[in-house]
Design a binder for these strands. Structure first.
Lengths: 232, 232
DNA sequence: GCAAAAGTGTTCTTGGTACACCCATGG
DNA sequence: CCATGGGTGTACCAAGAACACTTTTGC
């Protein structure tokens, strides 16, 4: 029988924090200050502390990196995966529990708690360049986000407090990477109970007809779901 | 800043191994030999060893408990969740990574590698009586299995090598806990490319018309999905 | 009026449900 | 013959796709 695990073992919580900025899907990225991978891009994250669950650790990292408290917002933390390759961290045995968050276009603190630089980066810009196995995590996060938009109301988490149906459609188009029919999209959103509720206000664009503004509705799940056109 | 985690930390892989036996959804259960919870029911599982990923550890536990090698079968191991409450294990800090497997009606070795008794138990029979937080894991496993049947071909993993469409329907009915229309079910399965392929054989029942036998098809995903009637 | 985006209505098609009906076997 | 489960055909309905058309603004 193989030897049992007596080596020093640590658990990390890593976060894929996605947003839509400038009409592109972007991910909160940090530049590492310390070895290993000093100077390279990575996802924010940190080690589990005494008495913390992995969820609490992830919330703490999110708060430290973005200043956002999960309990005072309608953000959502979702388990993405467990990354436990013995060689994934050159410092030793580190098992990473990865979480996904969809966030509106937040202001970013100038630096994280440990003086690392944090910024939004388009997913395509950092894909392939991340430290550790964070590329795998990012790829899984994007795919999960796409699926989540089909069955949950989380797209509203990408939006500001009040938004138009067109804003919401833009989120879907950017995350899914496909163009949607505005007319049909409108009706599907309206027909789904609890997805959005009218705020009573309007937004006047630079050009075109004013659009009604909405707030997130009470529902968390979409019923019926809002499916992408082609499924592989 | 809170103290970092210097205590002894272990990672366990726990398994929810589901099957359909005697027309009921059953779960592989062990009786614990050693404290804590000695004599009580629990899900099989064990600690991560040096050099193992959590997936490899889960495969090893599955092999030890059921004698089935994932690589030589069409079984499926799926990440269910991470359970990291600091007080979940009285022995100390143990973070559990839970996996789900759907298996055909396997013969069970008389005892696991560490002489624990292992047996199939109906889900309702053990729910509420499991050690640690394994009730939470089991509940999550059942719900996940129900969802998996909607979008994947995994129901065939519950079936023997050759099966009738009626067998397959029985799996869905037991796992979902609802009765399905045999006529419509037949057509949905046939219409879905790669779900099943005819073996050319027939099975003659005690009474009634012989049924064509099928094998799992090449597809892993169901397109279109096979949805339950009412979604909450 | 023109451009642009919001929003409605209508048709076509696809997939689900319900159910009538026939088929193939054992007794 | 009957009972039992396998399997096909069909009518109906709900939801998606495509798209013509109207509305409301700025210029």
């Amino acid at each position: 029988m193989p030897e049992r695990d007596h080596q020093r073992l640590k658990i990390a919580a890593d976060l894929a924090i996605l947003t839509v900025r400038e009409n592109r899907l972007q991910v909160l990225t940090i530049i590492r200050d310390n070895p290993p991978f000093a100077g390279q891009c990575a996802l924010p994250g940190g080690f589990l502390r005494v008495g913390e669950t992995v969820e609490v650790a992830a919330e703490r990292e999110l708060r430290e990196e973005t200043g956002v408290d999960v309990r005072h917002s309608r953000l959502h933390l979702e388990l993405l995966g467990v990354y436990s390759d013995p060689d994934r961290d050159p410092r030793g045995r580190v098992v990473s529990v990865a979480f996904l968050t969809l966030s509106p276009d937040l202001p970013i603190p100038t630096a994280g708690s440990d003086a690392r630089r944090a910024f939004w980066a388009p997913v395509e810009a950092v894909r392939g360049n991340l430290a550790f196995d964070h590329d795998r995590i990012l790829t899984a996060a994007v795919e999960r986000a796409r699926s989540l938009l089909e069955v949950t109301t989380l797209a509203t988490a990408f939006c500001p407090d009040e938004f138009t149906i067109g804003d919401l459609r833009g989120i879907y188009e950017v995350v899914w990477g496909e163009v949607l029919d505005p007319r049909n999209f409108n009706r599907k959103v309206m027909r789904t109970p609890g997805f959005v509720e009218a705020s009573g206000n309007q937004r006047v664009p630079e050009i075109g007809r004013p659009a009604a503004l909405y707030r997130p509705g009470g529902a968390a799940m979409l019923n019926p779901p809002l499916l992408r056109s082609h499924r592989s």
